[in-house]
Amino acid sequence: MSQGEIIESMRARAEKAAAVVSSAATLEEAIAYAVNLTAEEGGTTLAAPGMDDAAREALGKACGEKGITLLDSPLRDKMTRIHTAFTWADRGIADTGTLVLNSNSEELRLATMLSETHVAVLPTDKVVPSMDELEGYMTDHFKNGAGYVAFITGPSRTADIERILTIGVHGPERLHILLAENLDGGEK
């Protein structure tokens, strides 16, 4: 499979799992996407753990223009108020449309678990065909003691009432993936 086909599969599978998939050519575009989406949804807050200083600064500016509060650490104080989580994804798994997030940071976990909407930027060169190719990544990740990794495929869901699929139980109700070529700006 070519990387193009891998990305196509990533997109198709993620959409099948009820994620919204878009592209972002620059970090500014990704930020604008997250901020505009938050505003459209009537959200007033955004948490962005794991962004580097430059990204945070640009975010702060974009949020300010839309009257959105960029939440600071620690998020423990703001657990009931996180509308959007804006994060990087570490890897993508094409054949299931899955995001892989290094979730060692508690801030990142709180943001991605408690928000209503999760927007994740996925660098296209980090998408692998299947879970099998993550063996090295997982080994490295857990080599040095404690760790927490999340595979995320679409928004939170349940079918516990009459087997009717319903989105958004305990986790985010919406998952947006921004496929980004040649983009960098935080810890991954």
Partner: peptide, 16 residues
Amino acid sequence: ALTSYVTWIKGTNECA
């Protein structure tokens, strides 16, 4: 194809 979440945990992670 896969559940919404697969969570991999090792040891004593950050907890404020």
